[in-house]
Design a protein around this nucleic acid. Structure first.
Lengths: 159, 159
DNA sequence: CGTGAAACCAACATCTA
DNA sequence: TAGATGTTGGTTTCACG
């Protein structure tokens, strides 16, 4: 699967605005609409473009608080890891979960309505879990930058 | 701005699949297509639905590595904070940046092609910045869960 | 329910490695 | 020759009023 420069150009736009029309993309990437269409189909079929999602303003919803949690497990056995991963995936309030090197084993990004709601979440995730040694919580005061957009250019010189 | 249960239903679906058709949404939310359309327009106009983006497979791009970084500043003065925030926003490889309570001041989520690329990023972000006291890096071994979708239900009982 | 826009798909000529 | 591109046209789906 190779991605050429035109593909990168398309992906860059779509990562910011998935509603861009084929003609928009054609203009931006200096390709014909037909070519753009073929490329998009290929990128979707190959799973490079995985899905399209709507970004919803969190403040309007009731999930006003965000948390970063560092989790340390008692034992790092693969079955224990998988158990924890599944628990994280099952929990809607866990937005993101990363298995990492370093002092912590997992980094979680969670949302909650309020402190009480968050406390119940920690109960479900940690206190009911024998294998969690400790966890450290940081409350998010400012979501300075939020996004999943990835720089698609191999290096700065190619732009 | 109040969001009723039907709105929550719509948002819930759109957060996962922004390509759902109006008829799909109408069926899922037990509303008429016309009503869905009006609600969507209102949600978009009010900025509740901010934008639609494509999720791109990171592995296909060259940003194969992810990092979680805890940053501690020397002094927490507002102008220093703003300076750091701007630097994070300017840097495309910084996907997410949170200003948090606790032992660290900022939590960053970054991507890089390789270790060398990452090292250059840390140089730009930290070594050139007088105000950064220390930073701790965790390498992401497994992106167990990645998403921005937020549970839109005020509490579990309403589902 | 009608209209228009845009996505989708197929066919064909062209160009190049 | 094989692969990608541009052009065109026809069909269908869907958003919008």
């Amino acid at each position: 699967m190779d991605i050429d420069e035109s593909d990168r150009h398309l992906l860059e736009v779509l990562q910011e605005d998935a509603n861009a029309t084929i003609n928009d993309l054609a203009f931006a990437s200096h390709l014909s609409p037909a070519s753009v269409q073929r490329r998009l189909k290929r990128l979707r079929d190959k799973g490079v473009i995985q899905r399209q999602v709507a970004i919803v303003d969190q403040n309007v919803l009731d999930q006003k608080m965000s948390f970063v949690i560092l989790v340390e497990l008692e034992r790092e056995r693969t079955d224990q890891l998988d158990t924890f991963k599944r628990a994280a995936q099952r929990e809607p309030q866990v937005q993101q979960c990363y298995y990492v090197t370093g002092e912590a084993d997992f980094v979680l990004l969670c949302v909650a309505r309020d402190m009480d709601d968050f406390e119940q979440l920690t109960r479900r995730l940690f206190f009911d879990n024998e294998n969690v040694r400790r966890f450290r919580t940081s409350v998010v005061m400012d979501r300075t930058k939020v996004g999943l957009a990835v720089p698609v250019w191999p290096d700065d010189t190619e732009r």
